[in-house]
Design a binder for these strands. Structure first.
Lengths: 192, 192
DNA sequence: TTTTAATATTGACCATGGTCACTTTATAAT
DNA sequence: ATTATAAAGTGACCATGGTCAATATTAAAA
């Protein structure tokens, strides 16, 4: 049972990805049509689905890549030590996640691995989020009666809540960052 | 400018809804096909879309109704006074929300009103959730250095986090109710 | 009752994601 | 080089949600 991968495969795949990124750059993620992608890549529709399980699989990959880049960027910055600093440090990640309603919905949908054997890039980012924040919290000026891991999961929960509300017409009065700061202050402030 | 609604309209609409509930009862929400519904109702496909903007609009209505019923049930029960009691009291709502992956995703997607002029039943339930829990918290054995409203929003955030993780293969070890109790305990415990 | 205008229904048609039997191409064995 | 076999690519076709110009029905006015 041999399973040789032809060079052609990689080329085609690369062409599809470039074409997709091109389409997205022009019209955003939401507007991407498989038909447009294959046309731009110069391949048949069936070829697309030989390379990606479905349209969502491509999206997960592309959005996942961008998300990973956001994490890399955040990890380059200095280590935040207070609730507002933490909210601020995470800003690039949150900004991308809320850049498009479609992007936010897809990220949420793929935030949990559906099978242990196949953890996607987005699900991995959700784990990375908790690890990253937990690391910060160990030496931050926050309550320490609760484990950093649990605290970090809470930060994630509040961030998602804030992002959801950003898309909600009823909560336009308050800005995303204001809301998140209020949440994090209440959640992280040491019980004095 | 008259806008008479014919009796026929109400009948057709009722038939569509009954048909949809029938289909759902048999195969769940996820499997519902518009084609099946109109066939069961004995109308043309176009008629469906004259009554509901799209398939999601019907789903929002049906799932919203069930959700409202869950809230009614929860409000019948006694008022919880501790974190575990609160988690327990909310159980019927959380149980329905996680009864199907499709249901959870749709509820999350419709949790925020997209326009002030048109607040759907699900978005209304999210507001009701906060009001309900905030009411409980006023007299509960919890921290009171933070407003009940903010505390209640946090409860909602943690509940959503717990529900998300329920659908995640990586976090199967811990049960939903265990996880929620841990979160709520950490969030609501008075700072002594 | 007849006429008329608003309202409701219809089903052929479209858009888009996705499938699969078949063809073409690359690689390995002779 | 020729052949055999696995891998890659193709495009007609399907499934399903959604549209709209045409038709049918209702209800109010004459």
């Amino acid at each position: 049972m041999q399973k040789t991968v032809q060079k052609r495969t990689l080329k085609t795949r690369a062409r599809l990805i470039v074409a997709a990124e091109d389409v997205i750059e022009r019209n955003g993620y939401q507007a991407l049509r498989v038909e447009d992608v294959v046309q731009a890549a110069g391949v048949a529709k069936g070829t697309f689905f030989a390379h990606f399980r479905d349209k969502d699989a491509l999206m997960e990959m592309l959005i996942g890549e961008r998300l990973v880049a956001c994490f890399d960027q955040v990890e380059q910055g200095s280590v935040p030590r207070t609730a507002p600093e933490i909210a601020d440090a995470l800003q690039p990640i949150h900004a991308f996640m809320t850049s498009e309603r479609y992007v936010f919905d897809l990220i949420i949908r793929y935030s949990g691995a559906t099978a242990i054997t196949e953890i996607g890039p987005i699900a991995r980012c959700f784990e990375r989020y908790v690890r990253l924040v937990a690391g910060w919290l160990e030496t931050a000026k926050v309550r320490h009666d609760i484990s950093p891991d649990l605290l970090a999961e809470g930060v994630q929960a509040f961030a998602i809540q804030s992002m959801s509300l950003k898309f909600c017409a009823l909560h336009e009065a308050q800005s995303f960052s204001d809301r998140l700061e209020i949440y994090l202050d209440a959640w992280l402030t040491p019980a004095t």
